[in-house]
Amino acid sequence: MIVDAHHHLWRPERGYTWLDDPELAGIRRPFTPQDLRAEVTAAGVRHTVLVEGGRCHRDEVPEFLGYAADTEPIAGVVAWADVTDPDLTDTLAGYRRMRGGELLVGIRSQIQGEPDPDYLDRPEVRRGLAAVADAGLVFDLVVRADQLPAAARAARDLPQVPFVLDHLGKPRIRAGVAGLAGWSADLAALAVSPNVTAKLSGLVTEAGPGWTVAALRPFVTVAVDTFGASRLMFGSDWPVCLLVADYGTVRDALGAALPPLSAAERDEIFAGTATRVYRLAVGPEGADGCNATAR
């Protein structure tokens, strides 16, 4: 079985202004549950986690929960919320009452858009993170590489909060060896906290046009050495990945970039970790020949 722990859906006309960037013209179109179903079926992926798409508006939440309720591959939703919302506890309770609210598994704020690398140190942010944990939810960390130290401090100081690091903290893959140095140390500092897991997602996009498996491999290897297979999960980052690679290519690239692992370890990365961390109601692991498709 394969679980995709990170993908998006959007309709640009509904407020996804970040897609106005000329470099994003290739993905500036609607991506619907029907599109998703076709992609995951072709790629042999059984379940997915739908992640907020940068709209940063509560109106997205009932739409995405409704998608999850109506679309069999979507097993969970990581919805947007303002982590500094003083009424965050009530906001999250309201999400739970929405149709499909039982499929809410996590919350994400666009921390990467905050200029302050120490944003996660702010008291109002820490209160919000605690409220997410109190609601029984995971907090997805979408951060820049320079925000990793603050993420490590937050994870250390809030051991009750289950954190998931998106895209490995966006390392500078295009910089090669130079991109590994500071990032790998900061990643290790974050991984010290056992309440943190990480997604092997978004890497082809960070590598950019002309990416190769060889360019990804050192970063993937560091992640495996740092977190271990039981704390890593596959994410396609579709449709953002379409800027440089299609869905199936992303899945295959990760399989090729992984260091030698046992079948059980590969199953953790491609299904088990996401299922466990997000508490997804899915079928038994290994039923879909994960290892055959992930080589």
Rank of each mutant, 00 (worst) to 15 (best):
R126W: 03
G248W: 02
A135Q: 12
I2G: 07
G272E: 02
A152E: 05
R217C: 10
H7Y: 03
L104W: 14
F234H: 00
D157T: 03
V45L: 04
T32W: 08
V204T: 12
R276I: 07
C56L: 14
C241M: 12
T221N: 09
E39C: 09
F163V: 02
D252I: 03
H167K: 06
L254C: 12
D237F: 01
G15V: 01
Q112K: 11
G235N: 01
E60I: 09
Y16C: 11
S109Q: 14
D20V: 09
V40C: 01
M98V: 08
V132P: 00
L280V: 11
D116W: 07
T205G: 08
L190M: 06
P12A: 14
F31C: 03
L258E: 01
L88W: 04
K199I: 00
A274M: 04
A189M: 14
G286R: 05
V224D: 11
V224T: 12
W10Y: 10
A25V: 13
G54T: 12
L216R: 09
S230D: 15
P194K: 10
A133C: 05
W18D: 03
W18Y: 13
G54V: 14
T205D: 04
D186N: 14
L148H: 07
S193V: 15
A43L: 12
L280Y: 13
G53T: 06
D87L: 08
P284T: 10
A175I: 08
W10P: 07
